[in-house]
Each structure stands twice: as C-alpha cells, then as structure tokens.
C-alpha cells in the first residue's frame, strides 16, 4: 500500500511539473514582449529592462528555466505584478472561496442527481425515463454564464431574495452554487441512471429478487452499491475540475475565488500570478483525484490493494 501510494504521488507530481513547464514554455513562445504589454507605451528602455528582470525574462531560456524551477521548489514564484505581493500568497488567499463554492455545488449536485438518477432508472423505459432523459439533455445545453445572469436577474434584481454578487453573507453562496449545480446535476444524473439501469437489469439483481429480497434493498444494497464507484469517480473528477476555478460562474457573480483571479491575471498579463494559479490548481486537482482513488476500497471491497488475493 505504501509503495502504491508513493508511486501515485510521484506520478502526480511529475504531471504537475509537466503542466507548469508547459505554461512556462507557452508564455515564452508567445509573440510580443510581455514587458511592453505591462509597461505600456510610455515605458522607457530602462523600465522595460526592469520589468523583464522582475518577470525572470532575462538571460537564455535554459537559464530562465533553471531560475524558475529553483524558485518553484522553494515556493517562490515571484511577485504578482498587479497585486505587489508574492503571487503564491495571492492565490492561496483566494482559494478558500473557490473551495467553498465548489464544495457547496458538488454537495447540491450529489443530493439531487443521485436520487434523480435512481428514480428514473427504476422506471426505465417509461415516459418518466424519456422525459428525464430529454430534461437532462436540455440541462447540459445551457451556457452557465447565461443561466447565471438569468438567475441573478430574476432572484436578486426583480425579486430581491439573494445578494447580487460577491461573498457578503452565506446567502450569497446560493445562486452561484445553484448555477453550477444545474449543469452538473444533468451530467451526473445521466451517469447514475445509466449505471443503475444496467445493474437493475443484471442477473444478480434478478436472482436476489427471486429469493424475495425487498425492492428497497435491491435498489440500494445490490444495484447502487455496485454503481457507487463510477458515481464517486465522476463526482470527484467534477469537483477536481471545479477547483481549477469555476471561472465563468465566478466572473458572473463577482465571486472572489481563483476563477475571477485568473481572468484578471490574464487581462493584466500577470505571469507570476498565472504560474502560481496553474501550480496551485493543478496540484489540488490531482490531489483530489488521488484521494478519490484511495477512497475506492471504502466503496468496493474488491479493489482493496494488497488484500485482493488474501482469501
């Protein structure tokens, strides 16, 4: 188990390293001088040189890369250009907001999508099933920025129930979380439906039913127990993806998380900040996926590492 864990962690760190390096290369491949973009048209040659030095854009590319990597290992990604603070700190300050929003959204998704998927799967091939199918297709076809603006207008401008933007009170969490959940519910409930419909029609359920096992037990202990791994995986993957910044929704609701930070960093060409965001979010996303993998044994005894052959 320890060996498996060590290998997975090493693999994950290597992936993060690759992603961060890719961004390093991309920034340097791009046409145009970032120093000029930051300094503006009034910058003198000395200004430009100073900006380049600060951004770590002097010297040969391998030299710059070495400088970047040594800084990275020490947790030093440079000063954010627009915040005048260490870039990493700026990102870590914003992180709790994104985690709160993503957590609320995924919780809401799980609470609605799982029962919905099970409900429609138990009525497979009925008009309920067809209706839910078309409904979820419609649900995943709505652009988040549009549903966000619509919800915002209806529920905080026309009928002022919720605050319009930002994170002033907990009720400010409701609309952004619902906006994200609407799309995720559509995606996850389709998955739950597919898994459950397959399992409910499987021979092991038919056999259990013929032995007189109650329908409720068939649904939960037989069919759902066997659907839990793909469902948990999907929820975990979605959550990990959200930690990368629920960019669109954060922008619509002026939510002070990673997503709105990213947009700002890109607008101001704040390279240290972009690098820090990429590092933190990909570390987090990979961490969550690793965690989900490690949780599998809780849900399915068959995948308990190292115990598979002990019987």
């Amino acid at each position: 188990m320890a060996r498996y864990l060590a290998m997975r962690v090493a693999q994950s760190l290597f992936t993060v390293f690759l992603i961060v390096s890719t961004v390093f290369v991309l920034v340097r491949l791009a046409p145009g001088d970032p120093a000029a973009a930051i300094g503006g048209p009034t910058a003198t040659t000395e200004d430009l040189q100073a900006i380049r030095e600060e951004l770590g854009l002097v010297g040969s590319i391998p030299h710059q890369y070495w400088h970047f990597i040594t800084g990275l290992v020490q947790g030093d990604l440079g000063l954010s250009y627009s915040f005048r603070q260490p870039a990493l700190e700026v990102v870590l300050d914003r992180l709790p907001y994104t985690i709160t929003l993503a957590g609320a959204a995924i919780l809401l998704t799980a609470l609605i999508a799982i029962p919905l998927g099970i409900f429609t799967a138990r009525r497979a091939n009925s008009s309920w099933d067809v209706g839910a199918n078309i409904g979820t297709i419609a649900g995943q076809s709505m652009p988040e920025f549009w549903t966000g603006i619509m919800l915002l207008t209806l529920l905080s401008v026309v009928v002022p129930i919720f605050p319009a933007s930002g994170f002033t009170s907990w009720s400010g969490l409701v609309l952004p979380a619902v906006t994200i959940a609407l799309l995720q519910i559509a995606l996850i409930s389709r998955l739950v439906h597919r898994e459950m419909a397959g399992n409910l029609a499987a021979p092991f359920v038919t056999v259990a039913r013929s032995r007189g096992v109650a329908e409720r037990a068939l649904t939960w202990r037989y069919a759902f127990a066997n659907s839990s791994i793909p469902v948990v995986t999907a929820l975990g993957t979605r959550f990990a993806a959200m930690l990368n910044g629920v960019v669109v929704v954060e922008v619509v609701f002026a939510w002070p998380g990673i997503g709105s930070l990213v947009v700002r960093a890109l607008e101001t060409r704040d390279y240290p900040l972009i690098q820090a965001t990429v590092l933190v979010t990909s570390l987090l996303a990979i961490g969550v996926q690793l965690l989900v993998d490690l949780l599998y044994p809780l849900f399915d005894p068959r995948v308990r590492v190292g115990k598979a052959v002990s019987r």
């Binding site: 992603i19 920034v27 791009a30 993957t237 965001t277 990979i286």
Partner: peptide, 21 residues
C-alpha cells in the same frame, strides 16, 4: 489522455488565446 484530465483546461485555453491572439 490521462494528463489532460488534470490540466486546468479553461485556464490554459484562456492563456493560449491571450498569448497568441
């Protein structure tokens, strides 16, 4: 395919568009 799953995708897309026009 695996690596792409852990990439902060939208961020990367926005970055590329910002850099390359």
């Amino acid at each position: 395919l695996e690596a792409q799953m852990s990439v902060p995708l939208l961020l990367l897309l926005l970055l590329v568009v910002a850099l390359f026009g």
